[in-house]
Each structure stands twice: as structure tokens, then as C-alpha cells.
Design a protein around this nucleic acid. Sequence first.
DNA 1: TGTCAAAACTATACGCCGTGAAGTTTAGAT
DNA 2: ATCTAAACTTCACGGCGTATAGTTTTGACA
Lengths: 248, 248
Amino acid sequence: MAATTGKTTGAAGRGSTGRRERLRAETTAEIKSAALELMATGGPDAITLRAIAREMGMTANAIYGYFATRDELVTTLINDVYTALADAVDAAWESSAAAHPAVRISAWAHAFRAWALTNPEGFRLVYGDPVPGYRAPEGGAAPDAARRTCTGLAALAAAAWPHARQHYADSDFAWSDFDPGLLDKIRPAFPDLPPAGVALALRLWGHLHGLVSLEIYGHLRGQLAHPDKLFEEELNQLVRTLGIPRPA
Amino acid sequence: MAATTGKTTGAAGRGSTGRRERLRAETTAEIKSAALELMATGGPDAITLRAIAREMGMTANAIYGYFATRDELVTTLINDVYTALADAVDAAWESSAAAHPAVRISAWAHAFRAWALTNPEGFRLVYGDPVPGYRAPEGGAAPDAARRTCTGLAALAAAAWPHARQHYADSDFAWSDFDPGLLDKIRPAFPDLPPAGVALALRLWGHLHGLVSLEIYGHLRGQLAHPDKLFEEELNQLVRTLGIPRPA
DNA sequence: TGTCAAAACTATACGCCGTGAAGTTTAGAT
DNA sequence: ATCTAAACTTCACGGCGTATAGTTTTGACA
């Protein structure tokens, strides 16, 4: 059978057809959860079809009924995990909606790092080389989740923009410097954010990603004792360089 | 034989003993260069003992005469590659010794990014998950090269410090926040750099690493057209936030 | 209710991988 | 000339992704 088979042939009129589909969905979910469990235990490398099958009491080949290749499974996992990350930072942003911009930005960044520290293997899966020979499909593994994250960052930039704009007067970014698909999301949501503000969002992403990445991959371990403190300093300086006045 | 055998038993008095050692060194070098070639072609994943042996017209097991395990070989490669990176940024720093701090910092950062773009697989090897099941040894794979890079970053911070120090008045870092081994290198070289300056160096590392990392791993690809421009903006803003006056 | 096609799953096999054990060739040392 | 150890090969094991072919199960329809 082809793994791309999404539906049974007959239109789902009878309850029995629904049963097949339900079982199928359950098995798919079990495969994914087994894979995530393996990842949490032994890192992304531990995600192997044979190990998943072993965990499920199945043959490795049975998985091919649900995912065409291992890479397709990994891509699905990346999507799920990246979406979870996007959910986490979005939640932090939303739940601090009433707070001072400095506090909201800090909340977003802390949620980002906290998620990464809680799910280091997930972070590696999403942002690193996920798994031995994995090659991401055309357009990236999780374009939607990546877009959501970028849009979230644009929200940070937009919140800071009234204070920050003065520092970006001689930035010469144009809308054409960015991907149209990204702008489709950002421009309607933040009509006051100019191209230079989008660039700021991406730079911000780089800063946070870099610090968290160095920490997760252990490159900070031999240099300083408390990465928390460095991250805190980063956020303080971020607020300063954005020109946001400290809350009262 | 044990792979850890570094010397032949007899002290190297005779020329013939030297011959053995020379052949050994040549073979070791050939293994490493074959591995690097494979990496450049097919990414870190392509570094397999069997492929290296194939390339050399040998058996895979013969490599065990030179490296105890695949991981030991990979660790050696990481060291070599990381050292090459450290050499590249050091060279950029030294060769701009007479220039304005803003120019020197920019030169360092450009050298860092240029090296990464020229050797993307090397960047992944050093900073990512190098190879399928690889686990770095105690204390990291390339502690010396990492230290050199950190020290180089401290030089940037030290060059900026006369201008930047005013912004870090309320940073409460202490020497005890950092690894003594790192400070042994940094404090003698930059006696005027306080703890907050070291923290600045590490943050700077995070910023640059993050942007380059996002670019190398393709996360920027779907968002903007010219990563160069973003990096340039990063450097402009970096100089601004450090409070360094623009050169004349 | 019996029949049948398709879905779900297993069995076998191939070529990769790292690595251990044992055997063979080669070359420096005495 | 002989001996020893280094260098290298052969064979083997278990793990991996995955292609092919065969088997069992099950929902659909006459």
C-alpha cells in the first residue's frame, strides 16, 4: 500500500469505515509518541524505525504503511515539536498582553529558553541536524511553525518599535528584502512596522537563538557557571539597546 | 595494537625508526584528509570509517590502528577544524591591528561568517551534532580551540570597553561567574577588562553564532533574500550599542 | 451470510554502518 | 638469520533504512 493513502476508498458513510480510520489515526499517533519518547531518552539519533517498531511490538516495515520513509516521519515530528515551541512562546506572549513591553519581550525570551532547556532534544531536532542522514524537504521541514515564530518575533519588534525606531533611521531595508510569504503574515498584523523593524525581529531571533544554542550544545559549559545570568544580562541589554524605558 | 600507541618502544635514535614514525604520521594525515574530503562532499554524516578506508584502498579495521574509535577520529577532526576557524578569525584580528576598533570588530565578525559560509560542513561539525551517534569526550571536543575563540572575543570586548563600559555599570558579574581556565587566558591578556566585559564577550559570541547558525542551517532561507544585509545591519547596530564612535 | 478486494502486517533480503576477534604479512631490531 | 611487534586483512555480529513478496485480517457489497 502507499503510505500516502489518507482515506479509505469508500466515502465514510458507515460507522465501520470510521473505525478503520480511527485505528489508523491511533496507530499513527502511537508511532509518533514512541518516536518522541525515544528522542527524549536517547536524543534524536535514537529515532529509528526498528526501535519504534520494537517498542510497539511490530515489524519495522509496518511503519511504512504510515510514513513513506523515515525522513517523512522525522519531518512530521519536527513539525509537531516546532509547533509545540511556537505554542509555548505564543502563550507567554498572550498571557503577558497587559504588561509593559519590556516585560513581554522578556517573557517571550524566557519562554523560548525555558522550552529549549526542558526539551533540549527537541531543540536539536528542530534547529540542528535532526537525525543521521536526514534531508529536509523543499521549503524546510516546518515552514508554518517557523513562520509563526517569526511572526511572534515581529510582535516583539512591533512592541518595541515606538521606542526603537529612532535607532534604525539609517537602516536601508526594503520590503523586497524579505520573503513575500513572511510579509503576508507580518504586514497586516503589524501595519506600523517598517522593513527595518522586520530586520530587527530577525536579528533578535539570531541573538536569542545563538545564546540558547550555545548553551544547549554545551559550548558555554566550559566558560561560565550560570548561563541563566548571561541570558538575564542579555535581556537587560536588549531592553536598553531597544530604547525601552524601564517599567515603574 | 592499541590505537593509543603514540611511539614505538625504542627511543628514536636510528633513522629507520624515524621512517616508521613518518609513515605512521603520513597515514594518520591521510585518514584525516580523506575524512575531511568526505565531509566537504557529503556533510559530516559521510564521515564513516568504511568510506575513508575505501578511499584509501584499505580495510575499515585498519583505521583502528590509528584511532581507537570513530568518535576519537571525529574528535580529532573537530579539533583540527575548530583550530582552523580560530586561525581564521585570529588572522583577521591581527591583520587589522592598526585599524579603528569598529573596523577590527567588523573584520573579526566577517571572518567568522566567511569561514562558516566557506566551510558550512565544518561549522556543523564543530557547533552541531557532528555525526550520528557521536558523544563528545569529557570537557568538550576541542577545548583549546574554543578557548582561543573566547579569548579572541574577549579581545573584541576589550577593544570596545573604553566606549562600552558606561552601559554596563549595573551589571553584577563577578570573576567567580566564569571558568578559571578561561580567566587564566583572558585576565593577563586584557587586564582592564572587568567581569562584565567577559560577559559582553560571551553575549557577542551568542549574537554572531546565532545569526550565522540560522543562516547555515537554512532557517533564514525562507524569510529573507540576502542574509549578508542582515549581518551587516547586525554589525552596524553592534557598533552603535557598544557606543563606539564611527571612524572618520 | 458468503465472497472478495484492499488494508495491515510479516518474512526475507540487500547493502550500509561500527566494531570485536583472530589470523597473516611485513619490516625493524637484535 | 631470527624474532617480535606493527600493520593490515578476513570473518563475524548486530544495527540501520528500505525494497519485494507473501500472509493475515477486515470492512464492503452481492
